[in-house]
Every structure is written in C-alpha cells, then in structure tokens.
Design a protein around this nucleic acid. Structure first.
Lengths: 228, 228
DNA sequence: ATATAACATTGTTATATATCAACTTTTTAT
DNA sequence: ATAAAAAGTTGATATATAACAATGTTATAT
C-alpha cells in the first residue's frame, strides 16, 4: 500500500477513469493503489492465477497472451500506458484467462479488485465505460479468431503490422516485440515471421532496420491483410 | 407485438431471467416479446446488421457463426432453448458481430434491446447474471482461439464432439449439424471432418450411424482433444 | 414414384507451413 | 574487452491439411 504522494503521482492515468470516478463518488481516500515495477520480459500476471487486482499500465508496455500447447503462446494484444488488464474479473471470472508480461521496463498501478467491483456496481458511468471496452474486446477477439484461422502467413503478418501502427498511431515505429513475439502475435512460427518481413521489404511494402519498421505502402498491406 | 396470451406462453424460458426480473421490477406489462418461427437453415440474424433486439431460443436450436473469407465460416457455438443471443449489444456493440441461423425448425422470442438495456441498468441481479455469462463466453472464446490454432484435425474434431456431448448432456446424441457444419465448428474442411469421424469409428472411440453419434471412449477422446 | 438436389464419402494431389539445422548478428553480463 | 547468451536469418525437408475430383447415399419436392 502506498501513501498519498504515490497516489497522486502525476503520470498515473488512473486520473482518467477509476480515479476520477472515485473522486466523483467521494471515496478516493479509500483507493490504495500499489505501484509495481517490472523489467523486460518479467511476468506481471500468470494465466490461471486468482484475480486479486486489476492493473493499469503507467509506463512501458506489456503483452497479453495465452498459453498454447508445445510452448507456443498466442499474443492477444499489446498494452500501452492507460490500458487496463484484469477487468474481465469484474464480470465474474475469478482466474486470469491470460498472462501479462512486460515488454520493456514497466510501471503498473494495481488496484484491489474489490474496490473496482464496488465502483462498477455503484457508478453507472464507469460501468458503461468498462462495458463498452469489454464489448469491443469481444468483437476484436472474434475477428482474430477468423483471421488467425483463415489467413495465410503474409496476411497474418500484414495484419499484425497494421495493428501495431494503429496502436502506436504512426507508420514508422520501433517494434516493441522480438521477431518471436511478432510471430506469436500472428500465430505463426518465428522463421516464417522473419521470412515474410524480408519479403515485404524486398517488395518495397515496408522498410525494416532491426526493430525500426516503416509501413511504406499501407494500402498494399491492407489488401494483403484483408486477403487475397 | 403480441398480446398477453403470447407473452405468458408456457414454454418461454424468459420466465427464468428477463421475465422474472421484469416481474420483480413490476414492469412486466411493458415487456412486449415477439415470437418468430424459423425453418431449417434460415438466417435469424445477419452479421453486421444493426442490433434491434435480443433473442431467446424457445424451441429448436441454432448456430452462432462468423463469416470467414472464401465462404468458409466458423461456428462459435450452438444455441439450445433458453440460450440468448444479441446480449453483447448491452455492452455497447451496435452491430451483430456474428450470424445466427436455425439448425432446425425453431422458435425465437425477441425482446426490444432498449428494454433489455433498461433492465440491465436498473437491476443488479440481472446485471450480475448477464455479466457472468459474458465473462464465461470471453474465456471460452480465448480457449477456442488456442484450440483452433494449435490443435490438429483429430484434436479439433474430438473437441467438437466433447463440446456437443456436454451441451446436450449425453454421450449418445443425434448430431444437430451436417458434416460441413461439424467441420465449421472445428474450423477444418468437410472432407477432413468425415475422415476423422471414420478414423475414430474404426478405432472404436465412437460409434457413428448417420447423425447418431455415441462417444464410446470419452477418456481417449479427451486425451486426443487435449492433444496428441 | 421419380427426378433433383443436398449431403456424405473416399482417394489423389498440391501446397502452405512447421520443423530442423546451420550460421550470423546483436545484446548482455562479467 | 571478452565471453556467453539471446535474437535474428536463410535454406532444405517433412508433413498436415486443403483442394480437387469422382462417386455414393440420403433427403426433398413435384
């Protein structure tokens, strides 16, 4: 548990949602967030473990992923500052159905899940906000279900690149993922991820320099993703 | 819109949830359910269309599925009497992210979505009930994401058969699906679905007579599903 | 009752992708 | 600065599965 100093930390995006709501409700003093720090690749939550808290990314970024069979996991999405995890438990899931791991040095603000549930039950605005987010997530997962199943490797990688550029809101970004992780985001093997990246580069669709990627022909990429 | 006679129809499973809640709230007279009938393979809701209502299966059964690329769809689950569809819209989705189609002659009770939303907002018990159902659905879809991606055909079909036997609550059932649909539920081709069924039969794991299937060695099936 | 369409089955072939292996480059730790 | 480990790359091969094709069987409608 932390003191008020920590609680009011300038960077904490809690200000936007849970925090603001708790102020509105006059119970902000009961909110006792714990800030935790993680280094690269450190596990933040383990799939199957009891949900004790919800978390907000304050700094850094993380991957949300599910365990697969022979050590092959599938990355569901990438969390940036202000993104939450663990909210599904508000809807009755007592165990985390996914893992969360830091992609780089990260800072996470953790809030007791009972407090979140309380606000959820008492405050309609917060509820509506969270419900919308969940509804969107479900739709996205359904899309992913089809895409991972019916696209071939080029389409999958194209989709992942577009996802990342939209997430980071730029066509030129530093990939926060290793090649293996890009593969896991696309549900293919690392080797094929590399190969497709090389192909795209050779075809002039993207430019690749290590982790720096620029999408040169977004329209082509989109066509490959939508498949063809 | 229907009269009170229709509304109080004996079979309508609304009695259990929405209906009971509306009685509890004293607004059951405002509930104006419309019962609609569908024949085999008739479309009940179209993916991408505006959500105007939520529906409860009253009789028959239906498949919930998403459109794929080259005419290959993926069946998410099978709806039996008392199962709902369209509830996701309560969480802010204005368009159906899936199709629903009757598997056989079916009767569906449709309730104006605004009425459902109203009850959802006003009644905590109903909210909790629906939230739990949604949370479970999300967990299930995540499981499906992995299973469809990393299992091979035998594992997928084994999983589908187990799913159906649990749904219908018996080891001996009449498959409410064609071979093509069983394939779509498993995200494989029809040919491979048939082949695997034949294999399982030859191996004495199941017995197949047309649409009548009996799971003879559930333990083996479970092992195949969990992979091997 | 017969024709027609939908559904089911089996075999063959083509192909996309995983797997295996070797090697290079980059990062991390001492 | 050097060693060791992690990450990235490219090629060759094996394999699971989709695609194609042909045919049989069962429903459906007139």
């Amino acid at each position: 548990m932390h003191n008020k100093q920590d609680y009011n930390c300038k960077e904490c995006p809690l200000k936007c949602d849970l925090y603001l709501t708790s102020i509105e409700m006059g119970i902000e003093n009961e909110l006792e967030p714990v800030h935790a720090f993680f280094k690269k690749h450190e596990l933040i939550v383990k799939q199957g473990s009891e949900v004790s808290h919800a978390g907000v990314m304050v700094a850094g970024n993380a991957k949300m992923y599910v365990d697969g069979f022979n050590k092959r996991s599938i990355i569901l999405n990438v969390l940036l500052p202000s993104n939450y995890y663990g909210m599904l438990s508000v809807y009755g899931e007592s165990l985390f159905p996914y893992n969360v791991a830091a992609l780089g040095p990260s800072r996470v603000c953790m809030i007791d899940i009972e407090f979140v549930k309380r606000i959820y039950d008492l405050n309609q605005n917060f509820r509506t906000w969270l419900n919308k987010a969940l509804g969107l997530t479900v739709s996205e997962i359904m899309g992913k279900l089809v895409s991972l199943n019916q696209k071939q490797v080029r389409g999958k990688v194209a989709g992942s690149l577009i996802y990342l550029s939209e997430l980071l809101d730029t066509n030129e970004f530093t990939l926060p993922l290793t090649r293996k992780e890009l593969a896991e985001l696309s549900a293919i093997t690392e080797e094929n991820a590399v190969r497709v990246l090389t192909e795209f580069k050779r075809e002039g669709i993207i430019s690749v320099k290590g982790h720096c990627i620029e999408l040169l022909q977004l329209d082509v990429l989109e066509r490959i993703s939508d498949f063809g």
